[in-house]
Design a protein around this nucleic acid. Sequence first.
DNA 1: TTCAATTTTGATTGTACACTCTAATTTGAG
DNA 2: CTCAAATTAGAGTGTACAATCAAAATTGAA
Lengths: 181, 181
Amino acid sequence: MARYQVGIRTEARILEAARELLGELGLDGTTLKAICERAGVRVGSFYNLFDSKETVVLRVVAEAIAAVDPDPAHLGTETLNELVEAYIAFVTRDPTVARIYVQIAVSGALNSGDLHHRIQRHHEQRADRFRAAMQRDDPALAAGEATERTEILLATLNGLAFRAALDSEFDFARHARAVTG
Amino acid sequence: MARYQVGIRTEARILEAARELLGELGLDGTTLKAICERAGVRVGSFYNLFDSKETVVLRVVAEAIAAVDPDPAHLGTETLNELVEAYIAFVTRDPTVARIYVQIAVSGALNSGDLHHRIQRHHEQRADRFRAAMQRDDPALAAGEATERTEILLATLNGLAFRAALDSEFDFARHARAVTG
DNA sequence: TTCAATTTTGATTGTACACTCTAATTTGAG
DNA sequence: CTCAAATTAGAGTGTACAATCAAAATTGAA
């Protein structure tokens, strides 16, 4: 190990370049060449720091999701409303990254089993947090009913996000808040 | 014009091959080469009949959607329930094609403006039919309220379809019918 | 200061892809 | 049967892509 400072900075530049390109050009426009050019790095250096292009893209998406997490420490104190607001923040702050998440999820569904499982697990974890928050809000709510409501709520939010991806005029936040309460 | 029979049959073979491959391998796996091999046709013949690969893929998707249309003649007599059932039929009959529709919609959103507009128009037309059916079911329903409910209903159906694309075990039909009431 | 480990370079590989073009062949209407 | 139009063949074009590799340069701990 024993990373050198210069390498750490290069890694950060590559991630920043990828983040910018994904936002500006989307997944297809974010080629290895484009990332390296913007980061001011040769291709060989890229592969010294990352295993693949996929690695970088997934890190950018994961960081965008983590950036809006209302409970990064997993203390289990978040409310349903906070979770919905986090979802809204993710979609409205960086709509392109949100779209890329959907794109990866859908195209990866058939191929590359590993990616598929990671996305499925991510969805399940999010569903668990929604369900737990829902039951904290209303302790009388039965577990099965909470699971069911969570499934529908998340589907609606995902569907609205999809709608927002197609139409930039669409007021995602307003509709998302409407379904919550 | 004046098509020859052999050409018409070849066209049908190409469409069938594309349909099969899209179902088996998804969008990425459905290459021009693969389509031509399965259809027993040389690449040159393909381009004599179709402008591009995109043309074929879009025709397959459009035909899959049209196949479940409860009111192909647009008589305006369909019920909300029929529309939901048509949606369910589309997703459950050929899940891969449904996923490809999402894939095209999401990836095309940034690029190729034409495709983007076509998909947006398709969504709007569907929303109109849902809203009209909703008001036929309940004539007392205000227009604004119907628009709002349609937006939410379609979002939920799309989100559930997305969920089904990620998890083949997911019972899409049951959840879809649950939200309709 | 030394020097092993890390980082950078840049030329290169290999591949997969959609699409084109011309000439030969086949079709079917009159 | 004729022949123009439709269809087919198949080699070829061009391009964009992710990834590899060996050698040179640099870093920074001891």
